[in-house]
């Protein structure tokens, strides 16, 4: 049992380290995003920033009161988006999309992108 607890502790420590460390292509910790659940935001692409160290989708969406809210949706670095089939013109201003995301813990209208789908529900590019 002690061994099991020690292993579990080591696992938690490693996961904790992984969360605290800048991860993969990201240059900052992913602890800023709440990865316990995803949120879906539907709206219109205002701008697709194909930039380092992250790409961003600036998405205009309506809040519960029907007001316009601009979401800043972070993605990986462009070279990884390219490697996964994305291109700078994969998203164009005016496109209607639905984005599944892990929201910012800060509560600001933002998050990190998990999946992007078009208005018909078809996935755009790939998340694989």
């Amino acid at each position: 049992m002690k061994k099991l607890i020690a292993l579990a502790g080591a696992a938690c420590a490693m996961v904790g380290l992984a969360l605290a460390a800048p991860s993969a292509t990201a240059h900052h910790s992913f602890a800023m995003f709440d990865r316990s659940h995803t949120t879906t935001v539907r709206g219109t692409v205002r701008e697709f920033q194909w930039s380092n160290p992250h790409a961003y989708i600036q998405l205009m969406a309506k809040d519960a009161q029907g007001r316009d809210v601009e979401w800043s949706l972070e993605m990986g670095a462009p070279m990884y988006l390219y490697a996964r089939g994305w291109r700078p013109r994969t998203l164009r201003p005016g496109m209607e999309v639905s984005v599944d995301l892990y929201p910012l813990r800060s509560g600001e209208p933002g998050g990190v992108v998990v999946t992007v789908s078009d208005a018909s529900g078809k996935e755009i590019g790939t998340n694989e």
Binding site: T25, F30, G76, Y80, R84, Y102, V113, N127
Partner: peptide, 10 residues
Amino acid sequence: TTITGLAPIF
């Protein structure tokens, strides 16, 4: 690493 910016091991 995916479009999210996370490697699969995460």
